[in-house]
């Protein structure tokens, strides 16, 4: 078979629906035997947060950010028709009906397929997110690592 192809995705958005699109593409690309990497930056980092509250000593501002942002993929809102949180409940109901995979399962599936999940350390500092708050099976990197991957990526997306 030809040389392994690469897919890189920058997940900037913290919206449930956008993250779902990113993870569906990531899983699809993995099924295409691509080496897949998802770089999580800014609000996209919330998809990697553990749902359980972590006790971590933080500054006031960082603690506030931590409280205001969703703890984990399942708590993220919709980019459209969020309706103060009713939207996500409705869409999850519809997804169940259509047998679509919920976001947390898509993320686990991606890891099963060896998709690399990367947290952007600079934005973690900005948002006051600690490594202990994020999934244990992820890596940490910055812009250079992203460019290194994206430079020979066949599919590069910013979501």
């Amino acid at each position: 078979m030809a040389e392994t192809k690469k897919t890189t995705i920058v997940l900037f958005s913290g919206d449930y629906d956008k993250a779902m699109a990113a993870y569906i593409i990531a899983n699809g690309a993995a099924a295409y035997d691509h080496e897949v990497t998802i770089f999580h930056t800014f609000w996209g980092l919330n998809a990697l947060r553990k749902p359980e509250k972590q006790s971590i000593a933080k500054g006031k501002l960082e603690a506030m950010f931590g409280k205001m942002m969703p703890r984990g993929a399942d708590r993220m809102g919709l980019s459209n028709m969020n309706f103060l949180g009713i939207g996500p409940k409705l869409i999850k109901k519809v997804m169940k009906k259509h047998n679509a995979m919920p976001l947390p399962e898509l993320i686990d599936m991606a890891r099963e397929q060896d998709v690399r999940l990367i947290g952007c350390t600079m934005t973690m500092d900005l948002l006051g997110l600690d490594e202990k708050e994020l999934r244990d099976d992820i890596e940490y990197a910055g812009v250079a690592a992203y460019l290194g991957e994206a430079s020979d990526g066949n599919v590069n997306l910013f979501i």
Binding site: I24, N27, G28, A31, M95, H98, N99, A100, M101, M109, Q113
Partner: peptide, 14 residues
């Protein structure tokens, strides 16, 4: 049957 994208392709690949 009954499974939505991307599950059929993931199952096939596996």
């Amino acid at each position: 049957k009954g499974l939505a994208c991307p599950q059929p392709i993931l199952k096939t690949k596996k």
